[in-house]
Amino acid sequence: MSWSWEYLPSEEHVAGDAPAEFLGAAEQRAAELVRAAEALYLDGTTYEGSGEPMQYLDVAGGIVAYYVVPRIELVVICQLTPPLA
């Protein structure tokens, strides 16, 4: 396996009508999270813990909610809260 990220349940549901600038910044941070998780969990498939709890990032004035699932080498983006207009 190799690490990746995805929206859960879907990009349409999570990203909705988020502004393009915020969405781009959120996806860039998701890629950074993948690289960090890959360095932290060298072989995530052998991980035996319960995984990390939900975490939140401030991205371009908005918030990204995500969690890491080491066993399937995945960063899950489950909520985007764009900045207020």
Results as ranks from 00 to 15, higher is better:
A31W: 00
D43F: 13
Q28C: 09
L57P: 04
E12N: 15
A30V: 01
E52M: 00
S4Q: 05
V59T: 12
F22G: 00
A36V: 01
V64H: 05
G61H: 08
G51P: 00
D17T: 15
Q55E: 07
Y41W: 04
E6G: 02
E52V: 00
P9W: 01
A20G: 09
V59H: 07
P82A: 09
V64S: 05
G61V: 10
V14Q: 06
P53L: 08
A36S: 08
L33F: 00
P83Q: 10
E12P: 15
H13M: 15
A85D: 13
G61T: 11
T81A: 14
Y47P: 01
G16S: 12
A30I: 01
P82H: 05
Y66V: 06
C78Y: 05
E38Y: 04
Q55F: 00
E38V: 04
L33H: 02
A25W: 01
A39I: 03
L42T: 13
Y41I: 01
Y56F: 11
R29A: 08
F22M: 03
V69N: 14
A65G: 11
Y47N: 01
S10W: 01
A85G: 14
A25I: 02
W3E: 10
R29P: 05
P19S: 15
A31D: 12
L80P: 02
E21V: 11
S10Q: 07
Y41S: 01
A30E: 02
P70H: 08
V76G: 03
Y7V: 04
T81S: 15
E32Y: 03
A20Y: 06
E32N: 03
L33K: 00
A60C: 11
V14N: 06
A39K: 06
A18W: 07
A37I: 00
E27Q: 13
A60L: 14
